[in-house]
Design a protein around this nucleic acid. Structure first.
Length: 822
DNA sequence: GTGGTGTGGTAGC
DNA sequence: ATCGCTACCACACCAC
């Protein structure tokens, strides 16, 4: 990357009587590019020293006027519509600059390429103007491009005032399409929310960078340093990334004014603030209102919006520089931050690298600065980075570290130590520990007692400049480290529902979002977690932050699917059923998170229900076999014979176990009756509890029928699991004989009906699935038995109709339906 | 001890 | 107004 530094290298420097900055600033983006391109051309022609700014414009202008004349002669229609008018186009417009140019010139107008020729411009055309520009150009006639288009169409010059791009009109106009408030009930909510969420972008960028790293690795295996090798680590990070980039994009000087990046004006998070703002005590994460109050009287705080595209662009250029810099490893930490590793380097070599990178990055990012910490370990590089900020670099040598270095670092500067741990540590002894120099005195044992085994070790090593084993993995097993292990979605803003059905729909959309990603990764999941945020009991219905979550109680529950899947129906119904088991009144819900926990690679030839061909299994080397057998068992994967001739050992063992199970649990027919009765009892108990809950909530809600969950409550997950177990044993115990007892069956059907009636189809589905699997497994040996046939009948005539009746709940046609309909 | 579940904390701006 | 995400580790606790 060779950035052109015009501040120093420009042949024009100090030659013009107008300050350099205002000249460059006065150029439009295109103008600037053209100007730079022009410069490099002219230089090649060996008269760069003599070529002045005035000359440049003169040439340029003459060339342009000639071009315009030619154009008008060739295409012009003799119209003098824009005679006497000269326009300048600022920024992106529709129609574009070129088209506007042609339109104006063909109709007798003048097109001005550079605004610096002030006075010659009669109108400025722009669709929108950055804040800074708006102030600068306040004295001009500024209007939208439609003025040109409409004037030509009408054949007469329309009043430009009707098309004025006034700041207040500007505020009213684009709001119109936006005022279509997209609430969480709207199908586009997710998209809209994510498009504006900084945290979503940060997370997404991070996983993209990690994925890219892994791809790069596949393409060209990198050399990973050996554990005994001496390495040099560079930790590189933008200074207040969002603030710097947004400031540059809007034409602000990052050093001149206090700047914050945020959405709103009051209870909106500050994503990033510059060092000027930090002088007044403003910090990232603070609310804007708080920050404004911290400003001295009369001093203004500049608020800038997010420009995610620009952030991405700057990051791309940043990473490009790193990739071009001959590091052995470029490890992505986040959109604006990376750790680069090389072998041993001398102090002066490190210094060269730091300076080079800092200069290159500044050149390609409109002057954004990065700081660099350099050291012999990850933690040292990170601490050096903390010390180097802002706009600097620091190279540290573990042995040469003095007390000053440590005493200037706070506990929270340690990686992995946040607010919570920092409090714990500082309060652990008296007087409280305030910096790392003091922390170095703490014994390893007391550290471990204070913050736990692992973290204690980590911190003990960190303040001695060494990495712990876990952190090292980033360098020594980078592929493993950056490999994705889970996939999830979190929404804790804007969640305001009234009914469970709205939540169902929302869950469907979230699930679809995740499944799309899952399939992109070519993975399946076998474990789900649903985490919800529920308004804490005494909290206000509406928290201070607009549509925020306020103080909440988090609750999570996970489920195993047994089989890895990427099917929408299975996952969505599972989540919906899990949600019900968490007993959250729809109106109390403030946040939802869905996680896919156990990701497995999709095997193209994998059967829907997993089983291993016995032949393959038998042919395995005996030492491997037992290990695999255990593993299969653990995952409840069956070994299935394709030709039922010989009984293999696994199945033999399996059959032998059957009678024990039956005797142990289920031959007692009363058992299930008791169980169902107990369920009823639980139900009543929960209803009582809920009525009390309703009373509590009544103060803050109108108690409509749909306020609280449906009146019938369900046993919690544990109970359901137990019931499933019971049913399975019941099937096992009766399959070889006469089949289920009629009385039991009636109770069972009642239970299923209740599940079905109360929107708990997923549970019915699960029972159905399990019974069908069980029957399939046993078919080889028991299909002739009366009991087997009875159970098949139950499945086909009793359970399946319930599912099919409510097919719509499942959104997709279930594989099971097809299997058993035929 | 093993292995599972739910909770809590941290990281990036 | 406002956009409080998401991956991952470590731990406490439980059942066996």
């Amino acid at each position: 990357m060779s950035g052109y530094n015009y501040e120093e290298d420009s042949p024009l420097a100090n030659k013009s009587n107008i300050p350099e900055k205002s000249f460059l600033e006065s150029l439009s983006d295109d103008g600037l590019l053209e100007y730079i391109a022009g410069l490099s051309q002219e230089q090649g022609e060996d008269h760069g020293e003599q070529y002045s700014r005035g000359d440049y414009f003169h040439d340029k202008q003459k060339r342009q006027e000639k071009q315009d004349r030619e154009f008008r002669e060739r295409y012009g229609n003799g119209s003098e519509l824009f005679s006497g008018i000269s326009i300048y186009v600022n920024g992106f417009t529709k129609p574009g600059r070129l088209q506007l140019h042609e339109m104006v010139v063909a109709n007798g107008g003048k097109f001005v390429h550079f605004l610096s020729c002030k006075g010659r411009v009669s109108h400025i055309i722009a669709s929108n103007l950055p804040l800074k520009k708006r102030v600068e150009l306040a004295s001009y006639k500024i209007c939208r491009p439609e003025w040109i288009v409409d004037s030509i169409e009408e054949g007469k010059l329309l009043p430009w005032q009707d098309y004025a791009l006034l700041s207040d009109q500007d505020e009213i106009q684009p709001k119109l399409p936006q005022t279509a408030i997209v609430s969480c009930k709207h199908p586009d909510f997710l998209k809209q929310f994510f498009s504006k969420s900084r945290l979503h972008h940060l997370s997404n960028w991070k996983s993209d960078l990690r994925a890219e790293f892994c791809e790069r690795f596949l393409e060209k295996p990198l050399r990973i340093p050996g554990k005994s090798e001496v390495v040099t680590v560079f930790h590189i990070d933008f200074d207040c990334f969002f603030a710097s980039v947004s400031a540059a994009a809007n034409g602000f000087d990052i050093h001149a004014e206090p700047i914050v990046v945020c959405h709103g004006t009051k209870n909106s998070d500050i994503a990033s603030c510059n060092y000027e703002a930090r002088r007044y005590g403003i910090r990232n994460g603070m609310w804007v209102g708080t920050a404004v109050r911290m400003m001295p009287r009369g001093k203004k705080l500049v608020r800038l919006g997010y420009d995610f595209e620009q952030f991405e662009l700057m990051s791309k250029r940043f990473y490009q520089i790193l990739h071009d810099s001959q590091f052995e490893l470029v490890l992505p930490i986040s959109i604006d931050e990376a750790v680069c590793v090389t072998g041993y380097l001398t102090h002066s070599e490190c210094e060269l690298i730091c300076r080079g990178i800092r200069e290159n990055v500044s050149n390609v990012t409109n002057g954004c600065t990065v700081s660099i910490g350099c050291g012999g370990s990850l933690v040292l590089a990170r601490l050096a980075l903390k010390r180097s900020k802002p706009d600097g670099y620091q190279i540290v040598d573990c042995d040469g570290l003095d007390d000053v270095f440590w005493s200037h670092l706070k506990i929270e500067d340690l990686p992995g130590v946040g607010h919570s741990l920092a409090c714990k540590i500082s309060e652990y002894s008296y007087p409280p520990i305030g910096n790392l120099l003091e922390l170095r005195q703490m014994a390893q044992d007391s550290l471990r007692r204070c913050v736990g085994e692992k973290m204690g070790n980590k911190i003990y090593l960190a303040v001695r400049g060494k990495d712990d084993e876990e952190s090292c993995k980033m360098i020594y097993e980078p592929r493993q480290f950056f490999q994705r292990k889970s996939l999830s979605i979190d929404i804790n803003w804007g969640i305001r529902f009234d009914t469970i059905y709205e939540i169902d729909e929302f869950i469907d959309r979230c699930t679809q979002y995740l499944i799309d990603k899952l399939r992109e990764l070519d993975k399946k999941t076998s474990q789900l977690t649903l985490k919800i945020m529920k308004r804490s009991k005494d909290e206000a219905i509406e928290p201070p932050k607009y549509l925020g979550m306020g103080k909440c109680d988090p609750v999570a529950r996970s489920t195993r699917l047994g089989v890895p899947t990427d099917e929408f129906g299975v996952i969505a119904t599972e989540i919906k059923s899990t949600f019900r088991s968490l007993c959250c009144p729809p109106r109390e819900l403030r946040g939802i998170a869905i996680q896919f926990n156990k990701l497995e690679k999709t095997a193209s030839n994998q059967a829907k229900l997993p089983f291993v061909d016995a032949k393959i299994y038998q042919n395995l080397p005996s030492d491997v076999k037992s290990e695999i057998g255990r593993e299969l068992n653990k995952r409840s994967i069956n070994i299935r014979r394709t030709a039922p001739k010989r009984i293999n050992s696994y199945q033999e063992q399996f059959i032998q176990e059957l009678p024990t199970q039956i005797r142990g649990e289920v031959e007692n027919e009363i058992h299930i009756t008791n169980k169902v009765n107990k369920t009823k009892f639980d139900e009543i108990k929960e209803q009582v509890a809920k009525r009390q809950n309703e009373k509590v909530n009544a103060k803050s809600h109108f108690l409509g029928e749909n306020t609280i969950l449906l009146p019938i409550k369900f046993q919690n997950q544990t109970n359901f699991k137990k019931i499933i177990q019971l049913v399975m044993n019941w099937v096992d115990g009766t399959i070889r004989s006469q089949g289920p007892h009629e009385k039991d069956l009636r109770l069972f059907e009642k239970y299923l009906q209740r599940l079905s009636d109360t929107n708990r189809l997923p549970l019915v589905l699960r029972i159905c699935k399990l019974i069908s699997v069980k029957l399939e497994l046993r078919s080889e040996f028991f299909s002739h038995c009366n009991g087997f046939q009875e159970w098949e009948k139950v499945l086909l005539q009793m359970i399946l109709p319930k599912l099919n009746k409510n097919k719509h709940t499942f959104q997709t046609v279930r594989k099971l339906d097809i299997d058993f309909d035929t």
